[in-house]
Computed example of a mutant assay.
Amino acid sequence: MTEVMGLRERKKLETARRIVRTAIALFVERGFDNVSVQEIADAADVSKMTVFNYFGTKEDLAFRPMEDHFGDAARAVRERKPDESPVDAVRRQFLELVETRDPSVGLANEVFVRQLRELVLGTPALRDRVFLAAQKGTRDLAAHLAEETGDLMLATIAAAMISAARNALIEEHWRRADAGDHVDTIVADAPERTARAFALVEQGLGDYARKAH
């Protein structure tokens, strides 16, 4: 029975992946607003009802592949090791994702991932949803820190700074990739850049960019 269920789950996962990849290919080719769910279903060789069973909305087809990662920072803090600070936990998790060349931190050689990013950035409805999801991730992080410390104001500031550092690093990876840098070079530089980014969070702004006389 376990083997049967395992096979069933694998088939469901394969179907979901096929639907997503088919949808992304059509969106990239014709534009998100110019593709219907029925057309996606036909191209993926499934019914329209099957698409909606796997994905509640058309937007979910593009958003679902990245959805879980908006909670990565909050998850790192919740699951951090004893005596590990929130900054240390998020930095460690980030470097682990870099080491595995995870697309969620801007490291992707696969054409599909690049196409998905360009699609999201070029589609207002998807771009807005990503923004809201990122904001929710930061709020979740702040809520957890506030639970631990009892100070929502400082927790909100800390969460915003941690999220900003992490997001800036990801954007830097994408910027360098778009400029033609090889992923191996970006990965090799990541520890030093990550250390500098999170050091700014740890140390506070202090004399950063103080205007000279």
Rank of each mutant, 00 (worst) to 15 (best):
L154D: 11
V113D: 14
R117S: 04
A74P: 02
A143W: 09
M5Q: 15
E9R: 14
N53Q: 13
E118T: 15
I40L: 06
E171Q: 15
T2R: 12
Q203M: 11
R101P: 03
R80A: 02
E147Y: 11
G137V: 06
H182Y: 13
I40Y: 08
F112T: 00
L7G: 01
M5D: 13
E96P: 00
E148A: 03
K12Q: 03
D184I: 03
G204W: 04
D140Q: 13
H144S: 05
T50V: 09
L116K: 00
T194W: 13
D184S: 12
P65M: 11
V201G: 05
R30W: 04
N167I: 09
D102F: 01
D72L: 13
D68V: 06
E202R: 14
A195Q: 13
V113T: 04
R64Y: 11
R166N: 09
D189T: 09
R80G: 09
L152K: 06
R129D: 14
A142G: 03
G56K: 12
F55I: 05
V111D: 15
A160R: 11
F63N: 00
A142M: 00
A168Q: 15
L116Q: 02
I24W: 08
Q135S: 10
L141S: 05
E172G: 14
R64C: 03
L169P: 03
A190P: 15
F112D: 07
E202V: 07
S47Y: 10
T2E: 10
S36P: 02
L119G: 02
D45Y: 08
N34D: 09
P82Y: 06
A197H: 02
T149L: 05
Q203T: 13
T57K: 12
E202G: 08
F131S: 10
L13Y: 06
D88S: 15
A168H: 12
V113M: 06
L154S: 14
L97C: 01
A158K: 07
K211A: 11
R64F: 13
Y208Q: 12
A197T: 01
D68R: 14
D128C: 00
N167F: 15
R30H: 10
A133N: 06
I19E: 01
F112A: 08
D83A: 14
Q203Y: 05
R18F: 04
E110D: 13
F198V: 03
F27V: 00
A25R: 07
A62C: 08
L97Y: 09
F52S: 08
R64H: 12
H182I: 01
T2C: 04
A133L: 15
D181F: 08
E29T: 00
A43M: 13
K58N: 02
I157Q: 14
H213T: 15
A159P: 05
K12N: 09
